[in-house]
Design a protein around this nucleic acid. Sequence first.
DNA 1: AAATTTTATAAGCAATCGCTTAGTATAAGC
DNA 2: GCTTATACTAAGCGATTGCTTATAAAATTT
Lengths: 243, 243
Amino acid sequence: MRSDKTTGRAAPPRRRRKESSDILGFAKEIDAGLLSIVFPEQKETSLGRLLTSAVECFAQNGYHGTSTRDIARHAKLSSAALYVHFKTKNELLYKITLVMARSMLQDLRNVDKPELPPAERLAALIRSYVGCIARMTMAVRVSTFEFQALTREQRRVTTAIRSEVNAIVTACLEQGRDRGQFRIVDVDLMRIAIMSLCITVCQWYKPNGRMPPEELADHYVGLVLRMVGCQDGAAMDAKGAGL
Amino acid sequence: MRSDKTTGRAAPPRRRRKESSDILGFAKEIDAGLLSIVFPEQKETSLGRLLTSAVECFAQNGYHGTSTRDIARHAKLSSAALYVHFKTKNELLYKITLVMARSMLQDLRNVDKPELPPAERLAALIRSYVGCIARMTMAVRVSTFEFQALTREQRRVTTAIRSEVNAIVTACLEQGRDRGQFRIVDVDLMRIAIMSLCITVCQWYKPNGRMPPEELADHYVGLVLRMVGCQDGAAMDAKGAGL
DNA sequence: AAATTTTATAAGCAATCGCTTAGTATAAGC
DNA sequence: GCTTATACTAAGCGATTGCTTATAAAATTT
């Protein structure tokens, strides 16, 4: 389709570029979890403004619907300034996607406690996952819905990270099923259903609305426990999961 | 953002254009439900090829990621031929969106039986909704995820149709709750969760894979009945909802 | 069979695209 | 204090965009 082949021109020899020490730590590629911390606070630096602008523009109009001039204008910079910090527009999308994917994987790993009862383990995972999505709706939107604008290799890397996320949830579902606490026939289908239910939060939820992210997350914990046919579901409902 | 204002040129006086009698019945705007019937069979006519090509291109690369030349090439026509059938690229998207929105509303209305017990009523709605999404993943993808590429007025019309869909589901949920058969605290949140769960089917489901659309729909019926805390849920599980 | 309408094409227009170049101001290293 | 690297801008490059024009074959109406 619409060719994104860097305009097909011969790539001229590039000036050497600083390889690290910037706010995202691009040397060791990207520090996971930094997006959520870094983006809001770094609105004062040019690089931070570029990143937040890109996220907002991509979230609103999509990758292909946003021009580099849009991002630059939104960040109050010339469009050439963007190319001081990023080699291409595509790299901007890739870094946003990577940071988000790693951040969510890191968050899930931090809360995953295989020694807990499956229902509590799943509840913790969902609470973290939904909370994360609810707090960063725009960045999640970009990293989820602009996936196909990445190159094949970029998609491969991103998919690898996501399959680690999937593995965590799958392990929890299997554990619950094997212990007879979850009633699940097809674990893969159940995982897809659960995670797609959660991810859509980024499409409609307004972080500054009436319901705070934590309350929403609790609500979704209740929904998911019901979906897996968890016996503790009713108990959880009663003791304040919000359902 | 990226301006889509018909390139800002003065619109020259246009030749009069045929106002109806084509396959989509554009006279009375669009016939609901025709997309699903018409698109596959009409691959031989130029208009049909243009529509299916547009759906496929938009679904794969997004509205902004698809050029009119892409669509025309895909339909084996010159790019100017597109403008014989559609005034603008945007009109193409709008018609696809409208046809889908009306088609899904029509389908839901056809299966909605308020006199049935709430669980059965909801099951029928979900079965129809998911089945429809599973059978037309690409068109649903376009009409769902390219919403923001529509003009404000086009969005208004589309939203009006969708809120009728929402009203049907909401009515069913309230009925079930009021009769004490569904355990729902926040009906709006439950509806959003249910419908976003269903709609994401268009993102991952392959209609020609191992699982036929009907089986998937049954699976989702089971999930949704569990979500609403339906007492019949267990019974349904047993008698073959697939869970 | 003549007149008209519809459907299509090749060529091209202005606008916008991603990105580069040339040049400048500021800060850092020696 | 001189050099070097960085962060930025104005201007502009070729490619591609959505869409129009001029033209003509095919289909339909009369």
